[in-house]
Design a protein around this nucleic acid. Structure first.
Length: 616
DNA sequence: ACGAAGTGTCATTTT
DNA sequence: GCAAAATGACACTTC
């Protein structure tokens, strides 16, 4: 009953466990209604069954080539076949026609749009080159300017820096996208802080007026005791560095503003202002040891590397379905970016186009021939015309592997150079074919044998079932034309079933090839995206380090200026001001005022609250 | 012998 | 609702 169901699905549905032989048999059995053409069709179908069975064996396919489930279902049928005797009716008749009708249209009409024309630029556009710097700005500047909360995760920063070194090692060439990141015009970081050497603070100091000009920000500078401001000592207050870097650990956090400008003895009082207890997110990154001793970082990477970062990178490199990111190792990577048409040319496309061009003419030939009255003769041609299309890929592969085989098939010589996978069947006309007379001469038998071996199972089945048109037509004709074609012929149910199976399989075969190409292109493009993003990440991290370095230099200059100015200030008695009682404060107009520390603390609190309020 | 890659096919989902 | 396309999964072949 399964077989009957199978044939009843001929309306287009895909029956489970169907296979050509099965469907053929089923069709054969069903194709004998009382209204069937008559006894002739019945005998012919029986013959065809035997032919088909023999063909499968002759092809070396045997029963084992079919699906196991099919085999199970057909075991009883096969027994019947064997008992029914064998009548080889096609063995001789197809050969000559085969020599004349060599190729049937292959994979044609398959438009394979270049799905991934995306180049690096598109990728870099995806990377927020415009949006990222502001984020950096916030992260980098707000701590400095406000001296309050730390948006930084120090561990993350450490990992970032580690990854910088990693990326530097792996970065290849400066890509076009890199230009985008090298000091973009609107980059507030680069514009603001790359100018550190020429900061107006150095220029506009007026010791007599106790004012410092040019500083745009209005932050407080609490008076330090100059002599009691060793960077290293203050740094010990903020041991924020990761424990795995001892050399950095001792200096992390040393250069934060509060740490810089608060004398150690003032820390206690300053705690309720912009006190040094506030974790300075910049401290770790601004540390000179970390910024300057890149080699140490390299060493760290080489020796241990941050496990988290390493795992991240490893995941990035290895997670792509087990594919290597190194596209240079992928032979198919050559084709992906150049458009799908070229990418598809290497294997199946070329042969498909070749077979397409051949098959177009042949299909015509077969169809025309079969439409005549001399059924026997034309049937031979039609059988010969039964397509080679499904095996274009094999054909191509053999063509590449064995030029001698190609040479014996001069009409296939263009296979290796024809990259017309995407061309419609109509575009590949029969004009390229040599005259049929040329095919009849010479090694016609050899060609026939060779081509016979290249025929797919469906082609053999179609030939065995005496399908009066080519597999190419079966597969590639539009639905309307296909139905029209079917209506032109008096076809048995078995033939119809086989034809529909051939059409389904042929279309699915092309679809599978396209799907695989797309998948490959997708993978390759994703690999490129990953590489580009990694490059971008490395570049951004490098820029981050540069900005932080500039920031650190600025802070050092401010610190030294503050100390110098404050140390030279004298009261009316000619005595220096006490840093515990007075502090210098920047005013909004660029001037620097000497104010009592109590006032400075109050203003510092106000400064501290502002960013918090903003976030709420 | 074994595994990777390629391919054809079927079933199912998506268009 | 149907046809076609797309896709996952499996089996098989080839290298």
């Amino acid at each position: 009953m399964t077989r009957l169901d199978r044939s009843s699905h001929s309306g287009g549905g895909h029956a489970k466990g169907s296979r050509p032989l099965n469907s053929l048999l089923a069709g054969h059995r069903v194709a004998q209604p009382p209204s069937a053409p008559g006894s002739r069709a019945s005998v012919q179908d029986i013959d065809l069954i035997d032919i088909l069975w023999r063909q499968d064996i002759d092809l070396g396919a045997g029963r084992e080539v079919f699906d196991y489930s099919h085999r199970q279902k057909e075991q009883d049928v096969e027994k019947e076949l064997r008992d029914g005797g064998e009548q080889d009716t096609w063995a001789g008749e197809g050969a000559e026609a085969l020599a004349r009708n060599l190729l049937v249209d292959g994979e044609t009409g398959e438009s394979f749009p270049a799905q991934f024309p995306a180049d690096i630029s598109s990728i870099t556009e995806a990377v927020p080159s415009e949006s990222e710097p502001p984020a950096l700005q916030n992260n980098l500047l707000s701590p400095l300017l406000t001296g309050t909360e730390s948006p930084f995760d120090l561990e993350q920063q450490w990992q970032d820096l580690m990854s910088i070194m990693e990326m530097q090692a792996m970065e290849v060439n400066t890509s076009a996208s890199e230009i985008l990141y090298n000091a973009p015009p609107g980059d507030p970081l680069s514009t603001n802080y790359s100018l550190a050497p020429s900061t107006p603070i150095n220029q506009n100091v007026s010791l007599h007026q106790a004012s410092l000009g040019g500083c745009s920000q209005d932050f407080l500078l609490f008076s330090p005791e100059v002599e009691s401001l060793p960077v290293a000592s203050s740094s010990t207050l903020l041991p924020l560095a990761p424990s795995n870097s001892t050399s950095l650990n001792s200096t992390f956090g040393s250069t934060n503003l509060t740490g810089l400008f608060f004398p150690p003895q003032l820390n206690g009082t300053a705690n309720d202002t912009a006190g040094p207890e506030l974790p300075d997110p910049l401290g770790g990154l601004l540390d000179e040891a970390m910024l300057d001793e890149i080699s140490l970082m390299d060493l760290a990477i080489e020796e241990g590397f941050n496990p988290v970062q390493a795992s991240q990178l490893e995941e990035e490199f290895d997670s792509d379905s087990g594919l290597s990111l190194d596209s240079s190792h992928s032979p198919s990577s050559l084709s992906s970016s150049e458009g799908s048409s070229s990418s598809s040319s290497s294997s199946s496309s070329s042969s498909s186009s070749a077979s397409s061009s051949a098959s177009s003419s042949f299909s015509e030939e077969g169809a025309v021939g079969y439409s005549s009255d001399s059924e026997t003769l034309d049937l031979e041609e039609a059988e010969g015309a039964v397509g080679y299309q499904p095996e274009y890929s094999k054909f191509c592969r053999m063509s590449y592997q064995d030029p001698a085989q190609l040479s014996c098939l001069p009409y296939l010589e263009h296979v290796g150079h024809n990259h017309t996978y995407n061309m419609a069947p109509s575009a590949l006309d029969s004009a390229d074919l040599p005259p049929p007379s040329a095919l009849k001469k010479g090694s016609k038998e050899k060609q026939a044998d060779f081509l016979d071996k290249q025929m797919s199972r469906d082609e053999h089945r179609a030939r065995a079932m005496k399908i009066p048109f080519t597999n190419d037509k079966i597969i590639n004709l539009p639905v309307e034309e296909f139905n029209e074609l079917l209506s032109k012929y008096q076809l048995s149910e078995a033939q119809l079933s086989l034809i529909r199976d051939i059409r389904r399989r042929g279309k699915n075969k092309m679809a599978a090839q396209n799907c695989r190409k797309r998948k490959l292109d997708t993978i390759l493009n994703l690999e490129r995206d990953v590489e580009d993003l990694q490059r971008d990440k490395a570049r951004l991290l490098r820029e981050k380090v540069e900005f932080l370095r500039s920031l650190r230099q600025m802070k050092q200059k401010v610190q030294s200026l503050y100390q110098e100015v404050f140390g030279r200030l004298r009261d009316e008695n000619g005595r220096p001001y006490s840093p515990s009682q007075y502090a210098l404060q920047y005013a909004g107009d660029g001037s620097v005022l000497l104010i009592p520390r109590t006032m400075a603390d109050q203003q510092a609190r106000r400064q501290e609250r502002k960013p918090k309020d903003r976030r709420k």
